[in-house]
Amino acid sequence: MNFWPIVLDAMPQLLEGARLTILYSIAAVFFATILGLVFALFKLSSVSILRGIGQGYVHIFRGLPLLVLIFYIYFALPSVFPLQVWFGNKYMIMAGITALALNEGAYITEIIRAGILSIDRGQTEAAMSIGMTNFQTMRFIILPQALKRMVPPLVNQFIQTIKDTSLLSAISVAELTRRGQMIISVNFAGLQIWTAIAIVYLVIILSLTALSSYIERRWQVDQR
């Protein structure tokens, strides 16, 4: 069975798909982190309305299956708002990234909240006792310490996001999985192409794992 010729032939296509997979993952994680930070602070707020909003966000977007969320934003929302008219072909990618960001953001909310809560209350009291505002306390004292503890679970979540981008193939976003399906529909070489796709995903994810353990090691040497 001629494995290599088929895989090498498909490689440029697959790598282009891999590039988009990475790009969409980065975009999703970027927005998910912003959502996560905002809603984590909401959930920790002393204002009960904000706490309620934060809780609602997590409940809804952690509770929905990601594929349903993707379909909902891509197929259902346009019947309420003319989104495809506004955004054209780009709406497919926007819907995909939005769905990913909303879903991952719910998990990141909980990661950030747990990280912040893990910092000793005395740190906050000390910061306030020298006259820092709540914002300054969070920005200069709590978050820098919490971030270090959040790295391992955040890396987990980033890996999860990369894998979840494969679901975007269901709305024809041309990421790695979708590219593979398209190639197979022409050459019918399922075994070879799925094997190649699996290996490309593993390479992406293992490189990220290596990068994160490097970062963790460096932080320990620097600041501990």
Binding site: G122, Q123, E125, S129, Q223
Partner: peptide
């Protein structure tokens, strides 16, 4: 505004509470 008052009132804690990072 408590932050304004607190910067004039120094506090030392039983468990030091130095900023660890």
């Amino acid at each position: 505004n408590l932050s304004l008052v607190r910067k004039e009132v120094g506090m030392v804690f039983q468990r030091f509470n130095l900023f660890q990072h």
